[in-house]
Simulated scan of single mutants.
Amino acid sequence: MKKALLFVVALSAISASIAQAADRLQINTVLTLDGKAIEHRTAYIDNGETVHYLSDHTLEAMKAKDPNVKIEDNEKRAVGLEAHLTARLNSDGKILLTSKASYVGFYGYQDSPIPGVENAEFWTRELSGTRTINLAEPARYYDARQLKDKHDAFITVTVTRI
Score class of each variant (00 low, 15 high):
37 A>K: 08
96 L>W: 07
150 K>H: 13
154 F>A: 12
137 E>M: 08
125 R>H: 04
26 Q>E: 14
40 H>C: 08
107 Y>A: 12
107 Y>F: 10
63 K>E: 15
37 A>S: 13
48 G>C: 05
60 E>I: 09
77 R>K: 15
162 I>A: 06
160 T>M: 12
102 S>E: 11
84 H>L: 09
64 A>P: 04
54 L>C: 02
73 D>R: 08
117 V>I: 14
99 S>G: 00
121 E>T: 14
115 P>G: 11
57 H>G: 02
42 T>K: 15
18 I>R: 14
19 A>R: 07
107 Y>G: 05
31 L>H: 00
136 A>N: 15
47 N>E: 08
52 H>V: 09
27 I>A: 02
42 T>H: 05
117 V>Y: 09
45 I>T: 10
152 D>Y: 13
70 K>V: 10
78 A>P: 00
82 E>Y: 02
44 Y>I: 13
153 A>F: 06
113 P>A: 09
104 V>A: 05
8 V>Q: 10
130 T>H: 00
143 D>P: 07
144 A>R: 09
149 D>E: 08
155 I>W: 00
99 S>E: 04
103 Y>W: 03
103 Y>T: 00
49 E>I: 03
53 Y>L: 02
61 A>C: 11
108 G>R: 04
18 I>F: 12
115 P>W: 11
14 I>D: 01
106 F>L: 03
17 S>K: 14
123 W>R: 01
49 E>L: 03
84 H>R: 15
33 L>M: 07
159 V>L: 03
138 P>D: 02
21 A>E: 12
43 A>P: 07
102 S>F: 10
87 A>Y: 06
42 T>E: 14
143 D>V: 11
14 I>V: 15
83 A>K: 01
33 L>K: 08
66 D>S: 05
141 Y>T: 01
115 P>H: 13
72 E>L: 12
98 T>A: 07
86 T>A: 01
48 G>P: 04
44 Y>R: 08
68 N>T: 07
94 K>V: 08
147 L>R: 09
84 H>C: 05
83 A>N: 01
36 K>L: 13
122 F>N: 02
28 N>V: 02
72 E>R: 13
104 V>N: 07
134 N>A: 06
105 G>N: 03
2 K>R: 09
156 T>F: 09
110 Q>T: 11
25 L>H: 04
138 P>Y: 05
138 P>A: 06
132 T>R: 04
43 A>T: 13
63 K>M: 11
20 Q>W: 14
20 Q>N: 13
53 Y>H: 03
96 L>D: 14
57 H>W: 07
29 T>V: 15
43 A>D: 12
127 L>I: 03
76 K>L: 10
30 V>G: 04
116 G>R: 08
136 A>F: 10
100 K>V: 15
40 H>Q: 14
52 H>D: 05
156 T>V: 15
74 N>A: 03
97 L>M: 00
4 A>H: 11
141 Y>D: 07
88 R>T: 09
1 M>W: 12
107 Y>Q: 15
104 V>M: 05
71 I>Y: 04
145 R>Q: 13
3 K>H: 12
109 Y>W: 07
118 E>D: 14
143 D>L: 08
94 K>T: 14
110 Q>M: 09
159 V>H: 04
124 T>F: 05
